[in-house]
């Protein structure tokens, strides 16, 4: 009897099987907030990586996350992008989409792009191919198999190549790029996929001063059209781009506000200076 009712439940005609459902499409940002992170907890063998973390990211803003090593910055990004499961709490993309229910690929398709701390590009493939892979397109099997680059897509890749200054390296293998160029390529891969939200982990590590400056320009220009969250240790760089800064400490938010506000915040001073040798 139960088997029958199960089957009936499975065969209900008014709904679609979960695996056939397209990922929920529209992102509701009526309240001008794109990302809601509430009461997030995660521990590794007793070590609390995230501790009742609450964070709201406004739509279209450029937010910097700073904090000492182990403050939970990268772990937070892992949870948002579905790489790591959290123990409790909620992450909503817009007002309706519960990110915790989605896989990495789904989350990427929802429009959350990520740049890793260590640049991860496909070294055995050319710069152009790397960007082609990242293009915003139908990423199911058959469409990918039959995909041909349309002129507009090639234009798009070309524009991004110009933006990241790799036009001359178009057909070079990504593995042959310098460290800074790989960083740029990865940012380019983010750009070409036109995400709603960009999570960028230490973008200027290993870059020259000039490259850093250009990165700062690029990120500032992105804000508005996209929402950008940057994790960075380089305070100079943060100061040059930041409008709002969030300080994480031991897995929760310590302070939030403009750079000046944060720098004069007593808790921050205590944590940073009090612990300094």
């Amino acid at each position: 009897m139960t088997a029958l009712s199960h089957t009936a439940e499975l065969m209900r005609r008014d709904q679609v099987w979960p695996f056939l459902q397209p990922p929920a499409a529209s992102i509701n940002v009526d309240k001008d907030i794109l990302l809601y992170i509430e009461d997030l907890n995660l521990s590794f063998d007793g070590f609390k990586a995230l501790n009742n973390l609450n964070l709201y990211i406004n739509d279209g803003e450029l937010r910097c996350l700073i904090g000492a090593n182990g403050a939970g910055k990268t772990t937070l990004m892992d949870v948002i992008t579905g790489k790591t499961q959290c123990d409790s709490g909620s992450v909503f993309f817009g007002q309706t989409i519960n990110l915790l229910k989605y896989s990495e690929a789904d989350i990427a398709e929802l429009g959350i792009g990520r740049k890793f701390q260590k640049p991860t590009v496909f070294e055995a493939q050319s710069v152009f191919d790397n960007l082609e892979l990242a293009l915003k397109s139908n990423k199911r099997l058959l469409p990918t198999l039959l995909a041909r680059l349309s002129p507009s897509e090639i234009d798009r890749i070309d524009t991004v190549l110009a933006t990241i200054g790799l036009t001359d390296h178009r057909f070079q293998l990504a593995g042959a790029l310098s460290h800074g160029q790989k960083q740029w390529l990865e940012i380019g891969m983010l750009l070409v996929s036109e995400p709603r939200l960009l999570l960028i982990d230490e973008p200027v590590a290993g870059m020259t001063a000039e490259e850093t400056e250009r990165t700062a320009e690029l990120l500032t220009s992105l804000a508005g059209k996209h929402t950008v969250v940057v994790v960075e240790h380089d305070m100079e760089f943060v100061r040059s781009i930041a409008r709002t800064v969030t300080v994480l400490h031991q897995g929760s938010v310590l302070a939030e506000g403009s750079m000046d506000h944060v720098q004069n915040h007593p808790d921050v001073i205590e944590v940073y200076l009090g612990e300094a040798p």
Binding site: A105, A108, F122, A124, E132, L133, R140, L145, M189
Partner: peptide, 28 residues
């Protein structure tokens, strides 16, 4: 040599990264 093939090669070299690009690597 199609884009499918490029995805496959990308999976070989960095499967997690491909996932973050929005491809369901397991299906590929």
């Amino acid at each position: 040599k199609s884009r499918f093939g490029k995805v496959i090669e990308a999976i070989r070299d960095g499967e997690p990264r491909v996932r973050f690009l929005g491809y369901r690597t397991d299906r590929y």
